[in-house]
């Protein structure tokens, strides 16, 4: 998962800052493993969007892989 990009056009805007989300590199972490991934993020407050297909797809896959390590 490290150095992967999961950016895609999204309708979601930050409700707090009223900004469009923009691609940003962020660190996500599970069971001691850190991955630098590109996600859609609010440029002002840093709210990170994890879309459903990512949460239930690649992210779940990596979570389960790490749990079995």
């Amino acid at each position: 998962m490290s150095n992967f990009s999961f950016i895609s056009e999204t309708e979601w805007r930050c409700g707090c800052c009223n900004k469009e989300l923009q691609p940003r590199k962020v660190n996500v972490e599970y069971m001691g493993s850190v991955f630098n991934v590109e996600l859609m993020v609010c440029p002002v407050c840093g709210f990170v969007l994890v879309p459903e297909d990512l949460a239930l797809g690649k992210m779940l896959e990596v979570e389960q892989l790490l749990e079995d390590k």
Binding site: V26, V28, E29, Y30, G46, E52, A55, M59, E63
Partner: peptide, 15 residues
């Protein structure tokens, strides 16, 4: 309308 979850920790989350 929808609900889902993940276990990966995002920046700013408590660990």
């Amino acid at each position: 309308h929808n609900a889902y979850s993940h276990r990966m920790i995002l920046p700013g989350d408590a660990k």
